[in-house]
Every structure is written in structure tokens, then in C-alpha cells.
Nucleic acid binder design. Structure first.
Lengths: 140, 140
DNA sequence: CCTATATGCTACAGTCACTGTAGGAGCAAG
DNA sequence: CTTGCTCCTACAGTGACTGTAGCATATAGG
């Protein structure tokens, strides 16, 4: 029988907050943990693997909903992996469009800041641009 | 006396949801609107300008907290604009670091997807990488 | 005058992925 | 026996909205 450990150890080994693990159980991405006689949650290596998967996927920006689907798929090793691929590609698309729109923001912020003369608020280019969308790039 | 109009018109002219305007009033970034005899909110051009400023700042990714500060500063035209500048620069820093971390994700997702052979889930590189952080770039 | 549609109002719940807090119980070491 | 650590449940808070329920009011058409 495998070694069991409590939530604190699982939290330490996965660098996850204890509350976060309980939250994952509550919303069903982690299974209901078996309880010891004193009502404390008991885990083994399979839980550690599952939580590692979840945390790594979160680091890569997948939503918990995506992760739920990825976990369900990884439990069915014989199915083709197109669905896994589709989830990852959709997420990549989202990441790419987020990068693109942040780069537009970045340019606009740079433009605003570089035009600021360091004088009084009444002359501040930043305030002017914020007040008037037409001063933005591409609107002159 | 200036022309007054109701929340629906303000919403249309700023492309903002009516609820969002009421929300801005509730949290104090928009002033408490004067009410007509029938209890409806009345606005004029100054409200339109303020809301335009807020919406444009939001589009550029400023938090409502930042916007509150920017609005307070823009109401004091004689003060030097270093504080405005500082808010904008801090925000730009945040945008830039967000871009950088999304680019790391983008690369990793690309790597994962390109290694996926299109076979069965049990052989899927995407699932393997998610389960094992050490397969990530820089960890081999 | 009646009705349909549009708009307004308040108040509250839901989103996402946690994080924090209150209040209590159990257990080991000193 | 007390101190300190970990565990438990239950609930509130975050940011920036968005949606819904249930009601009142206003305007236009028939």
C-alpha cells in the first residue's frame, strides 16, 4: 500500500496553497480526498501527479475548464489526441492575440510617455491622449 | 444651461453598457449623477468627457484605481505631471513584462504542439509536457 | 384610452481563480 | 500544561464588469 501524506505536504511539494488544493477539490478538478480517522485529507503519488499536471497547465495559462478537459482526455490513453491538440492550439491562438493587443498598447503608452514634456498637468500629453482617443496612433 | 441627457444616450455615445456606467458611479470614478424628477440620472458634456477618459484609459489597460488617480491629477492642472508620468510608466512596465511572459508561453505552446505526432493520447507530447515540467524548455 | 415597446430604476447573483479570515480542533514537543 | 503547528469548515473579498428579476415610467401607434 502506497505512502499517504496530508495536504500540507502536497502543498509544499507542488508549491500550491493549501486553500487552492481544497478549492480544486471543491470544483472537481482534484478528486474528493479520502479522509483519515481525524477527518484530514490523505493523498498519495497519484494525487501529486495530478496536481502537478494542473499547476503546470495553469502556469501555461490554460483555464481550469480546459484543464478539466485535458485531464479527462489523459485518462483515456487510447483515444486519438486531436482534441488535446485543439485545446492547445486554441489556447495558443488566444495567447498570440493577447500578445498582439498588448504590443499595440505598449506602443501607444510609449508614444504617450515620450511626448510628455515633464511640465504641468495642464500641458500633459498623457492626460490629453487619455481624454481624446483621436490623438491615438492611426487617428490623425 | 447645458443640454442634459439620460444614461442610455451617454451609454450609446461612449459605447459603454448602462450597467457599467452605474457601476462607475457606485465605485466613485463617475460622480453621483443629478436626478430628474422621475429619479432618472441626468448627464451633460462634462460627464461625457469624463467617461470618455475612463473608457479610453481602460482600453489602454489602466486599472480603475490608476484611473481614479489620473482623474484626480487631471483636475489639478497646475501641478507638475510627474505623477501622471509615473503611473503611465509603471503601467508600461507591467504591459512589457506581461508581453514577455506571454511570449515564453507562446514558445512553449508552439514547442508542445509541434512535437505532437497526432497519434493516441498515450503518446501525446502535449499531455507529457503538461504532466512533467522537466520536459519544458531549459529543463533538459 | 389601451397597448406595446423602450427605457429607466434598484438590488442582487455570477464570472474566474484564487486568497484571506474567523473560529475551532487535534497533536507533538518542551 | 502550554505553545505552536497543522488541519478543518464556512464564508467574504478581489477586479471589472455582466446578467437577471421585478418593477415604474414614457412615448408612439391603433
Amino acid at each position: 500500500m502506497a505512502q499517504k501524506f496530508m495536504i500540507g505536504e502536497l502543498a509544499r511539494r507542488t508549491e500550491t496553497k493549501v486553500q487552492t488544493i481544497r478549492y480544486y477539490e471543491e470544483i472537481g478538478v482534484m478528486p474528493q480526498a479520502i479522509r483519515a480517522a481525524n477527518n484530514r485529507r490523505l493523498y498519495d503519488e497519484t494525487h501529486l501527479e495530478r496536481l502537478t499536471f494542473i499547476r503546470h497547465s495553469r502556469e501555461l495559462g490554460f483555464s481550469l475548464d480546459d484543464i478539466r478537459n485535458l485531464l479527462a482526455l489523459s485518462d483515456q490513453p487510447d483515444r486519438p489526441c486531436n482534441e488535446v491538440d485543439a485545446i492547445a492550439r486554441t489556447h495558443l491562438d488566444n495567447v498570440e492575440s493577447k500578445i498582439a493587443s498588448l504590443q499595440v498598447l505598449q506602443e501607444e503608452l510609449n508614444r504617450m510617455i515620450s511626448h510628455c514634456s515633464g511640465g504641468k498637468v495642464s500641458d500633459c500629453r498623457i492626460i490629453k491622449v487619455l481624454a481624446d482617443h483621436s490623438l491615438c496612433q492611426g487617428h490623425e
